[in-house]
């Protein structure tokens, strides 16, 4: 009986992990990572839908949050609020070097990076901008982490 239950739980977890929905937050980025995220997500050449991914319009539908940009002072509160609206369990991915370390915008009065100071980040995808393949690689790592949390 317990083994049956266990099997059910692993099976549902496996199935659920095939449906990671993605939400992108721009925390003041230069567009590069955002365009590449859009490219990765939506164009036939990369087609993350193969992995079951789907970009959603509402943070409440999301499982994986991609955050780009160095987190500017003005956008911080909005980012944190939207981030809180993503229901658990969720995985956070920092795309590009800006959210990881501030990148080239470090030392500015208006930049609050690193992002990890304000919310828990799980996967980093360095690059400026990371190429779509690298973003897919990062998403795959995020899915692996997410599966453990389901």
């Amino acid at each position: 009986m317990t083994s049956l239950k266990q099997m059910f739980s692993t099976q549902t977890r496996r199935m659920a992990s095939l449906s990671p929905w993605i939400y992108r937050i721009n925390a003041g980025s230069c567009n590069g990572c955002d365009v590449e995220c859009a490219t990765t997500a939506l164009i036939p050449r990369y087609d993350v839908e193969r992995l079951g991914c789907q970009y959603c319009g509402s943070p409440r539908h999301a499982d994986i949050v991609l955050i780009t940009g160095p987190l500017t002072a003005r956008v911080k509160d909005s980012v944190l609020r939207v981030y809180d609206e993503v229901p658990e369990p969720k995985v956070t991915v920092a795309v590009g070097v800006c959210p990881i370390s501030g990148g080239i915008f470090r030392d500015s009065y208006a930049v609050l990076a690193p992002l990890s100071k304000y919310l828990p980040v799980d996967v980093n995808i360095p690059g400026c901008a990371p190429r779509p393949q690298a973003i897919i690689e990062g998403i795959a790592q995020a899915i692996a982490i997410w599966r453990e949390r389901l």
């Binding site: 721009n26 003041g28 980025s29 230069c30 940009g69 160095p70 500017t72 002072a73 003005r74 956008v75 909005s78 915008f105 030392d107 500015s108 009065y109 208006a110 930049v111």
Partner: peptide
């Protein structure tokens, strides 16, 4: 102002 990163300031630094 949401993407204001103070680059003019950075450029002088």
């Amino acid at each position: 102002g949401h993407v204001h990163r103070g680059i003019e300031y950075l450029a002088t630094k």
